[in-house]
Amino acid sequence: MHISAELTPTAPRAVLFDRDGTIVVDVPYNGDPSLVQPMAGAREVLDGLRSRGIPVGVVTNQSGIARGLITREQVDAVNARVEELLGPFDVWEICPHGAGDACSCRKPGPGMVLSASARLQLEPGEVAVIGDIGADMGAAAAAGARAVLVPTDITLEEEISAAPAVAGSLAEAVESLWAGTV
Protein backbone atom coordinates (compact mmCIF):
# COMPACT_ATOMS: atom_id res chain seq x y z
CA MET A 1 0.00 0.00 0.00
CA HIS A 2 1.34 3.39 -0.96
CA ILE A 3 -0.25 6.51 0.43
CA SER A 4 1.20 9.89 -0.28
CA ALA A 5 2.71 11.43 2.83
CA GLU A 6 1.14 14.72 1.77
CA LEU A 7 -2.27 15.49 3.17
CA THR A 8 -4.56 16.73 0.43
CA PRO A 9 -7.58 18.93 1.08
CA THR A 10 -9.74 15.82 0.70
CA ALA A 11 -7.64 13.49 2.85
CA PRO A 12 -9.20 12.57 6.20
CA ARG A 13 -7.40 13.74 9.31
CA ALA A 14 -8.41 10.57 11.21
CA VAL A 15 -9.80 7.14 10.37
CA LEU A 16 -12.26 5.27 12.56
CA PHE A 17 -12.69 1.53 12.12
CA ASP A 18 -15.47 -0.84 13.05
CA ARG A 19 -13.99 -3.66 15.16
CA ASP A 20 -15.69 -6.99 14.37
CA GLY A 21 -15.47 -8.03 10.74
CA THR A 22 -13.35 -5.01 9.84
CA ILE A 23 -10.08 -5.07 11.81
CA VAL A 24 -10.60 -8.42 13.56
CA VAL A 25 -12.43 -11.57 12.51
CA ASP A 26 -16.00 -11.44 13.76
CA VAL A 27 -16.64 -13.80 16.67
CA PRO A 28 -20.19 -12.98 17.79
CA TYR A 29 -20.33 -11.66 21.35
CA ASN A 30 -16.67 -12.42 21.89
CA GLY A 31 -15.63 -12.22 25.53
CA ASP A 32 -12.46 -14.31 25.09
CA PRO A 33 -9.27 -12.44 24.16
CA SER A 34 -7.67 -15.68 22.92
CA LEU A 35 -10.19 -15.74 20.05
CA VAL A 36 -9.10 -12.37 18.64
CA GLN A 37 -7.67 -12.77 15.15
CA PRO A 38 -6.72 -9.74 13.02
CA MET A 39 -8.20 -9.38 9.55
CA ALA A 40 -5.70 -9.80 6.73
CA GLY A 41 -3.61 -6.68 6.29
CA ALA A 42 -5.09 -4.84 9.28
CA ARG A 43 -1.80 -4.30 11.12
CA GLU A 44 -0.07 -2.99 8.00
CA VAL A 45 -2.90 -0.57 7.21
CA LEU A 46 -3.02 0.74 10.78
CA ASP A 47 0.76 1.06 11.02
CA GLY A 48 0.79 2.90 7.69
CA LEU A 49 -1.71 5.46 8.99
CA ARG A 50 0.12 5.83 12.29
CA SER A 51 3.45 6.37 10.51
CA ARG A 52 1.88 9.33 8.71
CA GLY A 53 0.57 10.84 11.93
CA ILE A 54 -3.07 9.98 11.12
CA PRO A 55 -5.02 9.16 14.30
CA VAL A 56 -6.90 5.86 14.25
CA GLY A 57 -9.85 4.82 16.37
CA VAL A 58 -12.46 2.14 16.86
CA VAL A 59 -16.25 2.56 16.95
CA THR A 60 -17.97 -0.67 17.94
CA ASN A 61 -21.46 -1.80 18.90
CA GLN A 62 -21.31 -4.35 21.72
CA SER A 63 -24.95 -5.22 22.33
CA GLY A 64 -23.87 -8.45 24.02
CA ILE A 65 -23.33 -6.33 27.15
CA ALA A 66 -26.98 -5.19 27.18
CA ARG A 67 -28.12 -8.74 26.42
CA GLY A 68 -26.13 -10.17 29.33
CA LEU A 69 -24.06 -12.38 27.02
CA ILE A 70 -20.75 -10.68 27.86
CA THR A 71 -19.59 -8.19 30.47
CA ARG A 72 -17.96 -4.82 29.94
CA GLU A 73 -14.84 -6.29 31.53
CA GLN A 74 -14.77 -9.05 28.89
CA VAL A 75 -15.18 -6.48 26.11
CA ASP A 76 -12.35 -4.43 27.61
CA ALA A 77 -10.13 -7.55 27.75
CA VAL A 78 -10.89 -8.32 24.10
CA ASN A 79 -10.14 -4.70 23.17
CA ALA A 80 -6.84 -4.89 25.05
CA ARG A 81 -5.96 -7.96 22.98
CA VAL A 82 -6.91 -6.10 19.80
CA GLU A 83 -4.41 -3.41 20.77
CA GLU A 84 -1.73 -6.02 21.57
CA LEU A 85 -2.11 -7.45 18.08
CA LEU A 86 -2.82 -4.30 16.07
CA GLY A 87 -1.11 -1.52 18.01
CA PRO A 88 -2.52 1.40 19.98
CA PHE A 89 -5.64 3.29 19.00
CA ASP A 90 -6.06 7.00 19.67
CA VAL A 91 -9.70 6.60 20.62
CA TRP A 92 -12.15 3.80 21.43
CA GLU A 93 -15.92 4.28 21.38
CA ILE A 94 -18.02 1.38 22.60
CA CYS A 95 -21.82 1.23 22.59
CA PRO A 96 -22.97 -1.24 25.26
CA HIS A 97 -26.66 -0.83 24.41
CA GLY A 98 -29.12 -3.09 22.66
CA ALA A 99 -31.14 -2.23 19.58
CA GLY A 100 -34.20 -1.32 21.64
CA ASP A 101 -32.43 1.01 24.07
CA ALA A 102 -32.95 4.15 21.95
CA CYS A 103 -29.44 5.45 22.59
CA SER A 104 -27.69 7.87 20.24
CA CYS A 105 -24.39 5.98 20.29
CA ARG A 106 -25.46 2.69 18.68
CA LYS A 107 -24.62 2.52 14.99
CA PRO A 108 -26.24 3.48 12.66
CA GLY A 109 -26.72 6.45 14.98
CA PRO A 110 -24.01 9.11 14.84
CA GLY A 111 -23.09 9.19 18.55
CA MET A 112 -19.82 7.24 18.54
CA VAL A 113 -18.51 8.95 15.39
CA LEU A 114 -19.39 12.38 16.80
CA SER A 115 -17.81 11.57 20.16
CA ALA A 116 -14.64 10.15 18.61
CA SER A 117 -14.33 13.19 16.34
CA ALA A 118 -14.73 15.55 19.30
CA ARG A 119 -12.20 13.61 21.37
CA LEU A 120 -9.74 13.90 18.47
CA GLN A 121 -10.57 17.63 18.23
CA LEU A 122 -11.76 17.23 14.66
CA GLU A 123 -14.95 18.01 12.80
CA PRO A 124 -16.83 14.88 11.66
CA GLY A 125 -16.26 15.91 8.03
CA GLU A 126 -12.51 15.54 8.64
CA VAL A 127 -12.97 11.91 9.68
CA ALA A 128 -13.54 8.72 7.69
CA VAL A 129 -15.21 5.52 8.87
CA ILE A 130 -14.33 2.08 7.50
CA GLY A 131 -16.67 -0.80 8.27
CA ASP A 132 -18.21 -3.99 6.95
CA ILE A 133 -21.96 -3.41 7.24
CA GLY A 134 -24.60 -0.81 6.51
CA ALA A 135 -24.81 0.33 10.14
CA ASP A 136 -21.20 1.55 9.88
CA MET A 137 -22.04 3.50 6.73
CA GLY A 138 -25.18 4.89 8.35
CA ALA A 139 -23.30 6.11 11.40
CA ALA A 140 -20.76 7.90 9.22
CA ALA A 141 -23.46 9.50 7.08
CA ALA A 142 -25.50 10.58 10.11
CA ALA A 143 -22.41 12.20 11.62
CA GLY A 144 -21.29 13.87 8.39
CA ALA A 145 -18.16 11.72 8.04
CA ARG A 146 -16.93 9.92 4.94
CA ALA A 147 -17.27 6.15 4.76
CA VAL A 148 -15.93 3.14 2.92
CA LEU A 149 -17.50 -0.32 3.09
CA VAL A 150 -15.24 -3.38 3.05
CA PRO A 151 -17.74 -6.21 2.55
CA THR A 152 -17.45 -9.62 4.20
CA ASP A 153 -19.56 -12.75 3.91
CA ILE A 154 -22.21 -11.20 6.19
CA THR A 155 -22.55 -7.92 4.28
CA LEU A 156 -25.90 -7.75 2.53
CA GLU A 157 -26.15 -6.92 -1.18
CA GLU A 158 -28.35 -3.92 -0.42
CA GLU A 159 -25.69 -2.60 1.99
CA ILE A 160 -23.09 -2.87 -0.75
CA SER A 161 -25.24 -1.09 -3.33
CA ALA A 162 -26.18 1.65 -0.85
CA ALA A 163 -22.62 2.32 0.37
CA PRO A 164 -20.99 5.60 -0.66
CA ALA A 165 -17.79 3.70 -1.53
CA VAL A 166 -16.84 0.02 -1.56
CA ALA A 167 -13.35 -1.49 -1.37
CA GLY A 168 -12.10 -5.05 -1.57
CA SER A 169 -9.71 -4.71 1.38
CA LEU A 170 -8.71 -2.39 4.19
CA ALA A 171 -5.72 -1.26 2.14
CA GLU A 172 -7.96 -0.41 -0.82
CA ALA A 173 -10.35 1.44 1.49
CA VAL A 174 -7.57 3.65 2.85
CA GLU A 175 -6.10 4.20 -0.62
CA SER A 176 -9.51 5.36 -1.87
CA LEU A 177 -9.66 7.96 0.90
CA TRP A 178 -6.32 9.45 -0.14
CA ALA A 179 -7.12 9.21 -3.84
CA GLY A 180 -10.03 11.56 -3.23
CA THR A 181 -12.58 9.10 -4.58
CA VAL A 182 -14.57 9.07 -1.33
Rank of each mutant, 00 (worst) to 15 (best):
E6Q: 14
P9L: 10
T10R: 12
T10K: 12
P12K: 06
R19S: 09
V27Y: 11
V27E: 12
Y29T: 07
N30G: 13
G31N: 13
D32A: 07
A40I: 12
V45T: 12
S51V: 05
S51I: 09
G53P: 13
I54S: 08
P55G: 11
V56D: 09
G57V: 00
V59R: 02
V59E: 03
R67K: 15
R72L: 12
Q74E: 15
V78I: 02
V78L: 04
R81N: 00
L86E: 05
D90Y: 00
W92A: 00
E93N: 00
E93G: 14
G98A: 06
A99V: 14
G100W: 01
P108Q: 04
M112L: 15
L114A: 10
S115N: 12
S117V: 07
S117K: 02
V127R: 07
A128W: 04
G131M: 09
I133Y: 08
I133A: 10
G134E: 09
A135Q: 12
A135R: 13
D136Q: 08
A140T: 04
L149K: 01
P151G: 02
D153S: 11
E159Q: 13
I160G: 11
S161D: 04
A163L: 06
A173T: 04
E175T: 10
W178I: 06
W178R: 04
V182A: 12
